[in-house]
């Protein structure tokens, strides 16, 4: 074979093989791209937490309570008084407290001295730690109570001041623009859903010492609610 012709044939064959490989690779990518354009990505979107305990029943009651007590946009007031809480929850005090049973790991009980709405050091620390542990929760409930000493009206006001003390501290300590939409206050006085000694085993700001019903209800029960409404 003519040397020049042989050189051209060799070069042609090698170039052809190279070009065919490139063509096949690129063509294959183009076909995959066309196929992929029809498929959705299936990537999850970021959202607030919605834990397993957020049953339909719980959500219905939460929505009622949160709307009436000023958390859900459109609610008229911030904070529920005992009679309102009782009517919007439409349940007994025991059932109301049972709603919070799944929150044992996310809740804390901020305790106060008798006839006082002042947060002590232990209360401030526990409140800060609990609030900072928001995780994916959307709502922070503050359910304050009072022990039965004194008149019903006085205790109603005392529990309101306890709830307010908690909110005031959160506003001062956490510059959280969502605070208005996420913190809900319920003050129950001595009238509704009082805590029984079973709650002594929950996280409290005064973990040592007496834990009678009276001590337990001079308190603000706080909890993040990991439910989407």
């Amino acid at each position: 074979m003519n040397p020049k012709l042989r050189q051209l044939v060799i070069a042609g064959v090698v170039l052809l093989v190279t070009s065919v490989l490139v063509g096949v690779w690129v063509g294959s990518a183009a076909r995959r791209l066309a196929a992929a354009e029809d498929a959705s990505s299936g990537v999850a979107l970021a959202s607030a937490a919605d834990e397993g305990y957020c049953t339909g029943e719980l959500k219905v009651i939460l929505r009622r309570v949160l709307t009436s007590c000023g958390l859900v946009p459109g609610g008229s007031t911030r904070g529920c008084q005992p009679l309102q809480a009782k009517s919007v929850a439409a349940m007994s005090g025991g059932d109301f407290n049972a709603l919070f049973a799944p929150l044992a790991e996310r809740a804390a009980i901020i305790q106060f001295d008798q006839d006082s709405a002042e947060l002590d050091l232990g209360a401030l620390t526990l409140l800060d730690e609990t609030f900072a542990d928001q995780s994916g929760a959307s709502y922070f409930l503050v359910v304050s109570r009072a022990s039965p000493e004194g008149s019903v009206g006085y205790n109603r006001d005392l529990s309101r001041r306890r709830a307010s003390a908690v909110l005031d501290h959160l506003q001062a300590s956490f510059n959280d623009p969502d605070l208005e939409q996420e913190v809900g206050l319920l003050w129950l006085g001595e009238e509704f859903a009082q805590l029984d000694p079973e709650f002594c085993s929950w996280q409290r700001s005064r973990p040592v010492g007496l834990c009678s019903s009276a001590e337990l209800n001079r308190s603000a029960f706080i909890a993040w609610i990991d439910c989407r409404l």
């Binding site: 900072a132 994916g136 300590s173 956490f174 959280d176």
Partner: peptide
Amino acid sequence: KPATKSRLNRSLRWVVSNSLPVL
């Protein structure tokens, strides 16, 4: 500190408020 933990949580909530993909 609670304030620092809270700030990290808000960073995640910024992502939630914008409904971004989890990636």
